[in-house]
Computed example of a mutant assay.
Amino acid sequence: MEQPPNISAPGNTATDSYQALKTKLNKETAKINWQELQRHYASGAVIAVANGNDLIEVACQFSLDNKEAVEQWLTSGAMVKVDDQQAAQWFEQQATLWAVVVAPWVLVQEIVQPL
């Protein structure tokens, strides 16, 4: 996944703001059962972030309205709008997912179980 532009210069106000945003979104991330996301799914607002991608980074770029990064991730398949097949699978599995809200979207990611 492509990272945002390098804004990590020491004392950089943009860096401080970006880190504050990441911290805020990280604190707002939680595990949630798929059943609790049904109404959001029904309204077309649930986006799945592929494993191996940083859910918080994706949420930051959504928050910053970084259309270029979002379009690139959608095109590459790094994230997709949840479709009926995936929704049915998660429903049957009674899946629990990581989720973070970046209104109007709910970004979710499957929880990887250690081997």
Results as ranks from 00 to 15, higher is better:
E2Y: 08
Q3G: 09
P4S: 01
N6S: 14
N6K: 07
I7K: 13
S8G: 12
P10H: 08
G11A: 08
N12Y: 07
N12A: 13
A14N: 06
A14W: 08
S17Y: 01
Y18A: 05
Y18K: 09
L21I: 01
L21E: 02
T23F: 12
K24C: 05
K24E: 09
E28M: 05
T29R: 14
W34C: 00
Q35C: 13
E36A: 03
E36G: 04
L37S: 00
L37R: 02
H40S: 06
G44I: 00
A45G: 11
A45E: 11
V46G: 01
V49Q: 02
N51I: 07
L55T: 04
E57A: 12
A59G: 04
A59D: 04
Q61K: 08
Q61V: 13
F62P: 06
F62W: 04
S63Y: 04
L64P: 06
K67W: 02
A69Y: 12
V70R: 09
W73T: 06
V80N: 15
K81V: 15
D83E: 07
D84M: 07
Q85S: 15
A87Y: 03
A87N: 01
A87T: 03
A88Q: 13
Q94V: 08
T96D: 00
A99F: 02
A99L: 02
V101H: 11
V101P: 06
V102K: 06
V102P: 08
A103I: 13
P104V: 10
W105G: 15
V106N: 05
V108M: 00
E110N: 03
V112H: 11
V112L: 14
Q113C: 12
L115V: 14
